[in-house]
Structure formats: C-alpha cells, structure tokens
Design a protein around this nucleic acid. Structure first.
Lengths: 158, 158
DNA sequence: CAATGTTTCTAGCCTAGCTAGTGAAATTGA
DNA sequence: TCAATTTCACTAGCTAGGCTAGAAACATTG
C-alpha cells in the first residue's frame, strides 16, 4: 500500500525539516515551534499569552517563562502588557523575527501551495478525507504509533 | 485550500500521538522512537547497530550509548555481539518490547490500513503524489517550515 | 605489518525540561 | 462589599537527556 509509505516519508521529511530549521536558526526545536506559533497567531490577529503557548507546546508555564527569556534575549519575542488582565502578558514577535521567518518560509510555502493546487479537483476531497481519517487514527485513545516496514532511508549492517 | 489544513491537522495529531505514547509507555520520545526503529527493522530482518540508530535519531553515538543503557535497564532492548565486527554490537528488542508495542499498535495500524484501502482506486495515485511532493517541499534546502493560519485548536485571549 | 579509520563506550559538562512555591490580580459568592 | 478562592506569570532548585573529547578494541588499507 503506497499511501502509508508516502505518509511515512512525509513524516520523516517533516521531522528532518524541523531539525534543519532549528539548526539553521540556531535555537532548539521547541523555541522554533513557539516562534512559528506566535507569528501565525499574530498574522491572524490573535493575542498569545504564555499560558496558551505552554498549552500548545505541551510544556509547563515555568518552562515557558524560560523560553520567553531565551527568545527575548535573542531578540525574537517580546512581552507586552496584557490589555485587560494585569497579571498576564501578551507575547509579541519582533519585526526581525517576522522578517527572518518570512525569508525562510516564503519559498517553501509557495511551493506547498503550488503542489496543493496541482492536485486534480476531482481527487481533492479524497486527499483531504484521507488525511483527516489518518489524523483520527492517530488521535484514537490507546495508540502508540504505526510501525510498518522501515523505509529505505537507513543503513542496516546487512 | 483544505489540503494544507488537513496536512497541518495530521501533523499536530502525529505530534500529540508521540507525546501520549511517550507518556503512556513511561519513557521519553527519543527512546520510543528508537524502540520503534529497532522493532521495525527487526521485522524486516535487518540488524541495527548503535551507530545506525544514532544516525536515524539524529543524536550522537555517545547519547545513544546512554539510550541503550536506559532501554536495557527497562528491559526493552539488549546488546548482542555483532556477528562479523567485534567492535560493534547488534541492538535487539526483547520479547516483552515486541509484545508491548504490538499490543499498543495493532488497533491503530489496522485502522490505518482500512483508511488507506477506503481511498478510491482512482484517487490513490493523486494522494500518494501529493504526499511525496509535500515531502519534497520540506526537504528543499533552505526551508524553515510552513506557517499558514493557526488552526482552531488554540485559545487566544480574544 | 604499520598506519589509519571506525566503533562503542566513559567522563564530565550544559541546557531545557520539571515541581513546588510566591506575589499580584481577577473572580466568585455570601 | 469584601473575604476566599482561583488564575497568572515568575523564581528557585533539581534532573534527565543531550553534547564534546578522549580511550580502548578492532578493522582496513597500502
């Protein structure tokens, strides 16, 4: 079944991309993920609090405080006062962060759009349904992850 | 474009699944990944060395030594002497590890197969091509990762 | 067979997580 | 209204899982 093979390949590519990205931007994977999260929400005009960020990243708020310190020091994120809750804070990406991410993303994102548009109209619902159903499989309660035969991306000793 | 939305959803589901899996098996994500790798290769009758494992996981061989110690202590992996290279080692999953993983995976894997088989014959090549092309996008040299609008899985402060 | 390369492991360090607990502000309820 | 509770971000201190450097055993090559 080539579909599962293709899915596995995509997952590995995604993992490797995150790795390169983290390497290339000289920050750890969580920090990059956080940066992407903040920027995406900023583009959608939605404020991000440390708590929301922690929930998304799956780390504690204490760790998020440290994360914000790091990304503050590196000049990517800033803490602004929350407009309505004086205990809280709004996390904002700096212009530099926006520019840096835009620069790195633009090309890939454009390519992805092209690829999506190249899928024949008639097949699109099936593609979307397939991915949604796969997501459902992974979301089911008691799962551990799929295995399947290894891809040819390894170097067994033979 | 719903395809990219579906793809994002799949990625998040995959991430969360790994998180639950790591939580549920009471080991860190890298160790689970390693276990899956070893078991998958074992099923394909391919030996796994610490070095190959390190390469796959993207960590140093020194860290892999520690990883093997951990998974040895927990009774999931074993070091066997390498048949032809006396410097080296073959990493083997214990029966218990096989059973544990099989138990956790069986249902999900079965579901995934069903989902794949439910995709209409006519659309399958398009689905596979889409995923392959997306993987290529992510593999391109200078990429950072896609952004796109955030999904509704967040709780912005409004 | 000497020289070089490869493989795993050890020793010691550093970072990014964690829990527990704090002070300040918001919310709830009597 | 105001006391009690909850929620928020943060601090302090710990731990685990990465890293580099270097060593010993073995393989490979000229």
């Amino acid at each position: 079944m080539g579909l599962l093979r293709a899915l596995r390949r995509f997952r590995v590519a995604d993992r490797d991309m995150r790795r390169r990205m983290s390497e290339g931007m000289d920050m750890n994977a969580t920090d990059v993920d956080a940066l992407r999260y903040v920027i995406a929400h900023e583009r959608a005009r939605e404020a991000v609090t440390p708590r929301a960020l922690a929930a998304y990243l799956g780390i504690s708020t204490a760790s998020t405080t440290k994360l914000l310190d790091r990304l503050g020091r590196s000049g990517h994120l800033r803490r602004d006062p929350h407009p309505r809750d004086r205990r809280s804070v709004v996390v904002v990406a700096t212009d530099r962060a926006h520019a840096e991410v835009r620069e790195r993303l633009a090309r890939m994102h454009r390519r992805m759009l092209e690829v999506a548009e190249a899928v024949p109209e008639a097949s699109r619902p099936d593609v979307a349904r397939f991915l949604d159903a796969m997501a459902d499989c992974l979301s089911a309660e008691d799962t551990l992850g799929d295995l399947g035969p290894p891809d040819a991306s390894t170097e067994p000793i033979g």
